[in-house]
Amino acid sequence: MGIAIYMLTFLLLLIGVYALVAKKNLVRIIMGIAILEYAVNLLLVLVGYRRDGTPPILPRGQTAAELAARAVDPLPQALVLTSIVIGLSVTALAVALAVRLYDKYGTFDMNDIRNLRG
């Protein structure tokens, strides 16, 4: 079942990429960004999971050594926290760009927003 979990995560990643590359609607592209972020964050969390693990937070009256024997890996969580922040930042910037593009062209459709040659 572990293999299926990983493979579905990679599939989710590909759905995000598909939305970014093949879709023409600005809003849908922003949603693709969100899905892509989810997939990457999910992969990092999965990589750090330990079966029946506890959160890496020290309960009162326990030593770190006791916690270390059964906590999940805290490092990927710290990385994901940074990655969530980066994802929010990218989304905010993309929304700002989409809003301005709508102001200029009156549409979210990339087919009508095409002045540049590839």
């Binding site: 990429v17 590359v21 600005l26 997939a39 990092l44 990589v47 993309a94 200029k104 927003i113 002045n115």
Partner: peptide, 29 residues
Amino acid sequence: REELEAAFKYLVLGVVASSFILVGIAILY
């Protein structure tokens, strides 16, 4: 117009690139 459009395209491809970089780092970790 052109600048906003170019920036949006650039952002989209940049996001794809950095996602794959992060996937690579996750697997290496």
